[in-house]
Design a protein around this nucleic acid. Structure first.
Lengths: 248, 248
DNA sequence: CGAGAGCCTTGATGCAGATCAAACGCGCGA
DNA sequence: TCGCGCGTTTGATCTGCATCAAGGCTCTCG
């Protein structure tokens, strides 16, 4: 299918909606040009709500920079974060009209958007587009279900370790580096946001982070800058058996 | 696309892999015949494991009868159910080799299977197949994320009410009836299975069911036969705002 | 430089649900 | 028919996390 056409290298294809973690070998030039025609950028300030649950969504897109969250809220104010949006993550529900959750910009956020209707029309003509989206959605489903285990069965300490290991992994894969030594990254969430992700209170989050620091599992400079001297140790703390690798 | 072809009524299409809750207007005869060629049935006994997490899966399929669960287990034995498989539910991960979770038959289970490789080849030729699968996967993702709210933020009583309302809804939609009066159905899960779904212990499940019974929210005959006199009341107990309807 | 606002940490106390333990009820096979 | 086993119920106690409360750190703005 790519025969006779120049292949676009991943880094030339930052905005591609079916890019996933910087892998996008399947794009060909025609599609990119077609996508270009329906593409635009939007930016949001920290704290701004990108879409309210139930609102009509007229675009799909990918996060270019910044951090966003998908959250659900009960009338009495209890909230649960159901997804974390990091650069390269896809946002949107092709074939669906409204959003199912609030999408909130946690930091300043830039999105590369594609008008939804023409995008869906492209999907009908381009089987590998919907297949790729299916794969991405299956990945999200796996992640959501893995998180169900975290929420349902893990202790507070294990929850924190699980979150740290996920963020560390995502951060490392974005840097495209295979870090041999300690992992270093900035935690993009407040204690409250972490609590909402983990089904805890912010006080418990704070206490458990202090405990992990005290026990040498992590080091902290300031409140955000994390270094993980031994990733295997962190995985053990998270209660994960397989090393999970840095592969994904 | 359906022009000039006889449309298959839902009830004639019980095994269709892209059937979803008995709606399958998009099938046309050619595809059904092609599917027929790669179709076979399998049955499993209660308690039998259909697929182990990580195992190679060489089919996709739909549940024809019986109840199954998707579960994840930690080395120390803690388990979390991440999905419930009721008749008409799709099982499988087109484009993926292995299963991400254990699939367990909770009751005797009959599946209508399709060989995976030819099915995937069909997907490449048939855009609406992968689009339909994408829609179904988005539905599963929504359900998983809704369950994250249940696991992370609801009390034990709310969790039980949430589970009952989901099973009641699914049961009603399978019967194709729009029940005006009280809902009556059989609970297809043991207390332990419910506990694994809800992130609780079986003792807590038992106590909360007793409490809901005592408060008149539900009635029980034996341990399994449930009647719900007032569905709205149950929804309130579940902490759900919108009535949610019987629509899905 | 000081005041205030956010965000975070830490301490004291309370409670929902886990854990440990015992007994019930029902179906089934001898 | 009895006795056994499995799933369930119920009680007593324990504990991890929530809740309530008080400061601390750091950045910004006057």
């Amino acid at each position: 299918m790519l025969k006779d056409k120049p292949v676009i290298a991943p880094h030339e294809c930052v905005d591609c909606p079916i890019r996933h973690r910087a892998v996008c070998a399947r794009c060909d030039v025609n599609e990119l040009e077609e996508l270009e025609a329906i593409k635009y950028y939007r930016s949001y300030e920290a704290g701004q709500t990108v879409i309210w649950s139930g609102d009509r969504m007229d675009f799909v897109g990918t996060v270019v920079s910044g951090i966003g969250t998908l959250t659900q809220t009960m009338e009495d104010g209890r909230t649960q974060m159901v997804g974390l949006l990091l650069p390269s993550d896809f946002v949107g529900r092709p074939g669906r009209d409204g959003s199912a959750y609030d999408v909130v910009a946690t930091t300043d956020l830039v999105m590369c958007c594609f008008r939804k209707r023409p995008f869906e029309q492209m999907m009908e003509r381009t089987p590998h587009l919907s297949q790729r989206l299916l794969e991405m959605t299956l990945d999200e489903l796996d992640a959501a279900r893995e998180w169900m285990l975290v929420l349902g069965r893990k202790t507070a300490r294990e929850k924190i370790a699980s979150l740290l290991s996920i963020v560390a992994r995502r951060d490392a894969s974005l840097k495209l580096g295979v870090p041999d030594g300690p992992l270093v990254f900035d935690l993009p969430l407040t204690r409250e946001a972490m609590a909402d992700y983990l089904g805890l209170t912010l006080e418990t989050v704070s206490r458990q982070i202090s405990a992990l620091k005290r026990d040498g599992v992590i080091h902290l400079e300031g409140k955000r800058h994390v270094t993980i001297p031994d990733f295997t140790r962190l995985m053990e703390e998270a209660g994960d058996d397989s090393d999970g690798g840095m592969l994904v």
